[in-house]
Amino acid sequence: MLRVLSLLGLLAPVLGAVVLMVFRRRAPGPAALGLIACVLALLASGVGLVAERTAFLGGDLEGMTHRIEAAGLIRLLLMGAAVLVLLGAAAMGRHVSSTWVAAAVAGLVLCLAGAATQLLAIDLGAEHEGLTLLAAMLVEAVRFALIGAGTLLLCLGVVTSRPAATGPAEEPLVLAGRSAQHAWRLYQQLGARRR
Results as ranks from 00 to 15, higher is better:
Met1Glu: 12
Leu2Pro: 10
Leu7Tyr: 15
Gly9Met: 02
Leu11Val: 08
Pro13Glu: 05
Gly16Val: 08
Met21Phe: 09
Val22Pro: 06
Phe23Ala: 05
Arg24Phe: 13
Arg25Leu: 04
Ala27Ile: 10
Gly29His: 15
Pro30Asn: 07
Pro30Thr: 11
Ala32Val: 14
Ala32Gly: 10
Leu33Thr: 15
Ile36Ser: 02
Ile36His: 06
Ala37Asp: 03
Ala37Leu: 03
Cys38Thr: 01
Val39Met: 09
Leu40His: 03
Ala41Asp: 00
Ser45Cys: 01
Val50Phe: 05
Arg53Ser: 04
Ala55Lys: 00
Glu62Cys: 01
Met64Ala: 11
Met64Gln: 12
Ala70Val: 14
Arg75Gln: 11
Arg75Met: 11
Leu77His: 14
Leu78His: 09
Gly88Pro: 03
Met92Trp: 02
Gly93Tyr: 07
Arg94Ser: 09
His95Leu: 13
Ser97Lys: 11
Thr99Glu: 10
Trp100Lys: 03
Trp100Leu: 06
Val101Glu: 12
Ala102Met: 13
Ala104Gly: 11
Ala104Asn: 03
Leu110Trp: 08
Ala115Pro: 04
Ala116Gln: 05
Ala116Trp: 01
Leu119Pro: 03
Glu127Arg: 03
Glu127Val: 14
Glu129Val: 15
Gly130Val: 14
Thr132Glu: 09
Ala136Phe: 05
Arg143Ile: 12
Arg143Cys: 09
Phe144Glu: 06
Ile147Cys: 02
Gly148Asn: 07
Gly150Gln: 07
Thr151Tyr: 11
Leu152Glu: 05
Leu153Ala: 06
Leu154Ala: 01
Gly157Tyr: 01
Gly157Ile: 00
Val158Leu: 07
Val159Ala: 01
Ser161Pro: 06
Ser161Gln: 06
Arg162Ile: 00
Ala165Pro: 08
Glu171Leu: 07
Pro172Trp: 05
Leu173Gly: 04
Gly177Tyr: 02
Arg178Met: 07
Ala180Gln: 07
His182Leu: 13
Trp184Thr: 08
Arg185Ser: 03
Leu186Gly: 08
Tyr187Met: 12
Gln188Asn: 13
Gln189Ile: 10
Leu190Ser: 13
Ala192Ile: 06
Arg193Ile: 15
